[in-house]
């Protein structure tokens, strides 16, 4: 680690600690005094300051490996959540119909729509990136 990069890492860590303390303090004060705007302002200022520090630090946060891992994690999440919600919707619809509880059946139907929406949005974004990187133009 060069002196320069070491300094950057230390400064970034220090900034993170400072910002976290600041956000915690403002949220705590806002919550205890019942001032929602103070808590919100604290969070927004903290996020903005952190984004500024990250940008100026020049440190690499993402690279191709992180992107590749993110893509695989996103696909795994998509498959897991789709299967889970699909099964849950079947279960709710089945239970709702058997017990005559319209609320549970409607919840199952909504889950079913969410799964369909998930798959459709996945297909559209996949098609988008396929065209973007597929060399069609």
């Amino acid at each position: 680690m060069t002196l320069h990069s070491a300094g950057v890492v230390v400064n970034l860590r220090r900034a993170k600690i400072l910002v976290t303390s600041f956000v915690c303090a403002t949220v705590a004060v806002g919550a205890t005094s019942g001032n929602m705007y103070l808590a919100l302002a604290g969070i927004v200022i903290g996020a903005l300051f952190m984004a500024l520090v990250r940008r100026r630090s020049g440190e690499v946060h993402t690279d191709e490996r992180v992107d590749a891992l993110g893509g695989r994690a996103a696909r795994a999440t998509f498959v897991i959540m789709s299967v889970f919600l699909g099964l849950l919707s079947l279960f709710f619809i089945f239970i709702g119909r058997n017990t005559g509880d319209g609320g549970i059946e409607a919840l199952g139907t909504v889950f079913c729509y969410i799964v369909c929406l998930n798959c459709a949005v996945y297909s559209i974004t996949f098609k988008y990136f396929d065209r973007e990187h597929g060399g069609e133009y």
């Binding site: 690499v60 993402t62 690279d63 191709e64 490996r65």
Partner: peptide, 18 residues
């Protein structure tokens, strides 16, 4: 060092280790 190589090629140190 891994850190220096990572900085020079613009990736994280974890990527160089991997």
């Amino acid at each position: 060092t891994q850190e220096e190589l990572a900085r020079r090629v613009g990736v994280t140190r974890q990527t160089i280790i991997a």
